[in-house]
């Protein structure tokens, strides 16, 4: 019998995979992709909680919609910044983005 715990473990797994990618990737676009995976994991948790704990008042699904909206805005602005930096530096390697170091 699949219950709330199964969905939460799936969310935790997906979050950890995304976290690993966000910490280890050299390419800025790959880091953005990993962050999308983490946001998806959070959405699974929100929807699972709303399904199993408050099935009549599905605020969790509303939160998930807002997360998706913010994620879409984030990826659009993030890729725009990556493209702007690429035009300037001809690189998307995060190790090259060190202008603020002295």
């Amino acid at each position: 019998m699949i219950g709330l715990g199964h969905f939460l473990v799936l969310g935790a797994l997906l979050f950890c995979i995304g976290l690993y990618g966000a910490l280890t990737k050299r390419n800025a676009v790959a880091v953005l992709m990993s962050i999308e995976l983490m946001l998806n994991a959070v959405n699974i948790n929100l929807v699972a909680f709303s399904r199993y704990l408050t099935p009549d008042y599905i605020a969790g699904q509303v939160f998930a919609v807002f997360t998706i909206i913010v994620a879409a805005a984030e990826v659009a602005v993030g890729l725009a910044i990556v493209i702007a930096i690429y035009r300037d530096r001809l690189s998307v390697e995060l190790d090259d983005f060190d202008w603020l170091k002295w």
Binding site: N43, V47, A64, V65, V75, A76
Partner: peptide
């Protein structure tokens, strides 16, 4: 969560993936 599933396909599998 039917609506979230549809939004997931449209926004993530459609828009975000194409953007990436």
């Amino acid at each position: 969560a039917d609506f979230i599933a549809a939004v997931q396909i449209l926004v993530y599998a459609g828009a975000v993936a194409i953007l990436v």
